[in-house]
């Protein structure tokens, strides 16, 4: 019962303020005559008819698929490489300057380069998303792995854990709070890069559609597209938190126990 109540309150907090803002905008823009700033009602109409209609399959789903592939690629590469680099001092010493260099390159400039290699299709966009999202995951994984308590590692060695068990049961869980911090940062970067890569060269997708709508002066539809993007980020962040709460429940408990 208390659990249900807590859930309900936290949900109210998540949805509450956005709802207030929405209502304020609704009444604030009602009867707007500005061509570039249509009323919320007009935007919502277009959202329902246009974006939740044909554009859902034509633009939203392709974007989501690219985002998922790019983010997944970044996660696999980032965690995999991060664990490798974090565990081995020689690898770290060799790779660290190289990584710092590549990290300093803003991912959008890779778009023209990647178009040369991968064309303007989905592959290019997935690579752009992954190339930007991989860094926070990689660097946080390295830090997380390096910070594993030596007593925990000694314990694992004493009980002669296999390499596999050492990774799966000790190193990865110990580093997971840091890894999740990286994954969270990477999520917002991935969404930004999804839009940017689609604005450059594409035939569909959210970024492409918003630019097209702006150029053809379909202003309410353009605004509706931006609302869709906002909603997308919002929903993904809630999903992320849901997963994180489950995977890192032990960490929350540990921190609470340490504080008291």
């Amino acid at each position: 019962m208390t659990w249900l109540l807590r859930r309900a309150t936290s949900l109210a907090f998540i949805v509450g303020l956005p709802l207030v803002v929405f209502v304020a905008l609704w009444f604030g823009t009602a009867g707007s005559t500005n061509f570039y700033l249509p009323s919320m009602q007009v935007i919502m109409d277009s959202l329902a008819s246009d974006w939740l209609g044909s554009r859902l399959g034509d633009d939203v789903l392709p974007s989501l698929a690219r985002l998922a592939m790019g983010y997944l690629l970044a996660a696999v590469l980032g965690v995999g490489l991060g664990v490798l680099v974090g565990l081995s001092r020689p690898v770290r010493q060799v790779l660290e300057p190289v990584l710092e260099f590549f990290r300093a390159i803003p991912p959008p400039v890779l778009v023209p380069v990647l178009i040369l290699f991968a064309g303007i299709g989905t592959t290019m966009k997935v690579f752009v998303i992954a190339s930007g999202a991989v860094w926070p995951i990689l660097l946080n994984s390295v830090e997380g792995v390096r910070a594993v308590d030596p007593v925990q590692l000694d314990t694992a060695r004493c009980y002669r854990f296999s390499r596999r068990a050492l990774l799966r049961r000790v190193v990865l869980p110990a580093a997971s709070p840091q890894i999740f911090a990286g994954l969270r940062q990477a999520l917002s970067i991935a969404i930004i890069l999804m839009v940017i890569s689609e604005m450059f060269a594409a035939t569909n997708g959210l970024g492409f559609a918003i630019v097209q709508l702006q150029r053809s002066f379909a202003i309410p539809e353009m605004w509706a597209g931006i609302v869709v993007l906002g909603l997308l980020g919002f929903v993904l962040s809630i999903l992320f938190r849901f997963v994180e709460d489950r995977v890192l429940a032990w960490h929350r408990g540990l921190r609470r126990a340490e504080r008291s």
Partner: peptide, 15 residues
């Protein structure tokens, strides 16, 4: 088997 001085840190808090 070894029981370490820092027992609290030798138990895995995620298990």
């Amino acid at each position: 088997a070894v029981v370490f001085q820092e027992y609290g840190r030798s138990l895995y808090p995620w298990m």
